[in-house]
Amino acid sequence: MRNLIPGKEVPDLKVKTTKGIEYDLKNDSPENFTMLIFYRGLHCPVCKKYLEELNTKVDEFREKGVNVVCISSNSKELAEKTIQNWDVDNLDIGYGLGIEHGRKWDLYISEAIKEEEPDAFLEPALFLIRPDHTLYSASIQSMPFARPKFDELLKSIGFVLKEDYPARGGK
């Protein structure tokens, strides 16, 4: 059974960030959406490319009233290495989300198959959350690939806002 249903409230979410603050979804008050991006972690070259692309477009999301937060189950040390080694200086990077909490978000969990991977980690997902903390849209992956394209997402958000397009899939 799914935990997340469009139009329904999402689970609580609190994580520490590499900027030294605790991010709490309940306290986030975007103009239009919060975009939560769950990524696999420092070990993932696809995540690196994806977040580095987002880093160049985050201002466009903000102009559309979208707050952006990127989250992994990585430790503080690995999250800090992410900031040092990836070009993600414009992003808020949260870390330490527990595997069991990831399950509340319907995330897929993987076990390490390579030495550089954590024993267990979250697979990628992207959520758009309304200011009232209800789910608008979800893209949940079981692999590192097939993620939403940021340019297409920006166009879609523009359409959604212009047409007041409702959340779908709630039945």
Rank of each mutant, 00 (worst) to 15 (best):
E31C: 04
L51E: 02
D92W: 06
L122V: 07
F121N: 03
E63N: 15
D119A: 14
H43Q: 13
I37R: 00
T34H: 06
K8M: 11
D132T: 05
D119F: 07
N55L: 08
E9M: 08
E100C: 00
T18I: 12
P131D: 08
D24E: 13
F121E: 12
S137E: 12
S137H: 11
Y95W: 13
W86E: 00
L135A: 07
G94E: 03
L135M: 05
K49Y: 00
D59G: 11
V69Y: 12
D87N: 15
I129E: 13
G158Q: 10
R130V: 01
L13Q: 06
S142P: 02
K14H: 05
G65P: 06
S137I: 06
I140R: 02
P11S: 10
S142A: 11
I37P: 00
S75C: 00
I99A: 00
D87V: 02
A79W: 01
K57M: 12
I21N: 15
K162R: 12
K76H: 11
E123L: 12
G20N: 09
E116K: 14
Y39G: 06
D92N: 15
K57Y: 02
N27H: 09
I5C: 12
E60C: 03
S142L: 06
S139W: 14
N74G: 14
A138V: 02
K16G: 06
T134C: 09
I113T: 15
A138C: 03
P148A: 03
V68T: 13
E100P: 01
D119N: 11
D12L: 14
N74S: 12
K19F: 05
E115P: 04
L91K: 11
Q84D: 10
K19D: 15
Y23R: 01
F159S: 11
S29F: 09
P30S: 10
K114D: 08
G41D: 07
G96Q: 10
V69E: 07
D164Y: 03
D164E: 14
D12P: 01
F33S: 11
L107W: 07
D132V: 00
L97G: 04
E115S: 10
R62I: 10
V68H: 12
P166E: 08
Y23S: 00
